[in-house]
């Protein structure tokens, strides 16, 4: 009996393109809702950079320093949702079996990653808008509409390389280990690329190595957005795109091999 039955054509089950698109939207929507409802997850991402900015950009500094710090805490704030939004959730979903279930279900390819990406992009945009509001109303930084828009776009897109890095970390560790490892990357990287203290007051060794960190290049973009960097930015954009491709490649390869 088994020999007869093997070559039967599959009965086609049509999935209209509209429904496939709907599945992507549903996945992104669920991903956003689930984290917006988890304050313990969302608040640290929103508060870390805004509290720092209130302390150092509003209370301790004025004028151009506040403008400069808006750019550097902006970069710091953008990185968080990428690293943590992706890394922590991927690590725990690999651990808890949700990723396995999603792979077994007919979820359209990439919907899982696109869903998390939209969540990180929205969170990064919210962080940047909060910082802009603090900058304008508390630190009295004057920003043109173009500058605000540039900063918001930098936030929404600048989070992507860090999504890819977070994803790579999420494929390397499982479950509870992820937040620790991510902080070990996040905080030193922020310091070494001049997001906390200006590079000019750091030792020359660190000044020279700052360029190896993706956060340095993001910071150059946020500085350009607020009008403090007049050099061409295309180089930094390309470096960030390169980081994204490499991290994404390594992460998807690991994910395919080890699940």
């Amino acid at each position: 009996m088994e020999t007869v039955i093997s070559l039967v054509p599959a009965q086609p089950v049509a999935m209209p393109p509209g429904r496939v698109f709907g599945a992507y939207v549903a996945e992104a929507r669920s991903e956003c809702i689930r984290y917006m409802r988890a304050p313990s997850f969302i608040l640290p991402m929103l508060l870390f950079s805004t509290v720092f900015y209130v302390m150092f950009g509003v209370l301790l500094n004025h004028g151009d320093a506040s403008r400069y710090l808006l750019a550097s805490y902006g970069a710091f704030g953008i990185i968080g949702p990428g690293l943590f939004g992706f890394g922590v959730s991927l690590a725990s979903e690999r651990d808890g079996g949700l990723l396995t279930l999603k792979r077994a279900l007919p979820m359209p390819p990439g919907a899982y990653l696109l869903g998390k990406m939209s969540m990180a992009m929205i969170a990064a945009t919210i962080v940047i808008m909060l910082l802009i509001l603090i900058g304008i109303f508390l630190a009295h930084v004057s920003l043109t509409a173009t500058q605000m828009l540039a900063l918001i776009v930098t936030g929404a897109l600048g989070v992507l390389p860090f999504c890819a890095l977070g994803m790579l970390v999420g494929t390397l560790v499982k479950g509870q280990g992820a937040p620790g490892l991510l902080n070990l990357i996040y905080l030193p990287m922020a310091f070494l690329s001049g997001l906390w203290l200006p590079l000019s007051i750091l030792p020359p060794v660190l000044q020279n190595t700052a360029k190896i960190w993706p956060s340095y290049h993001l910071n150059q973009l946020t500085l350009a957005a607020v009008g403090l960097n007049h050099e061409p930015i295309i180089g930094h954009v390309l470096v960030l795109a390169g980081f994204t491709v490499v991290f994404l490649f390594l992460a998807t390869r690991r994910l395919r091999r080890y699940g």
């Binding site: 599959a10 086609p12 089950v13 999935m15 669920s30 809702i33 689930r34 984290y35 409802r37 988890a38 725990s92 979903e93 808890g96 079996g97 949700l98 396995t100 279930l101 077994a104 279900l105 007919p106």
Partner: peptide, 18 residues
């Protein structure tokens, strides 16, 4: 296309609690 015709319940899957 093949998996669109199946349903799955695994032994353990932690679904999003919120």
């Amino acid at each position: 296309e093949a998996r669109r015709r199946i349903g799955v319940m695994l032994q353990s899957a932690l679904l999003p609690p919120t």
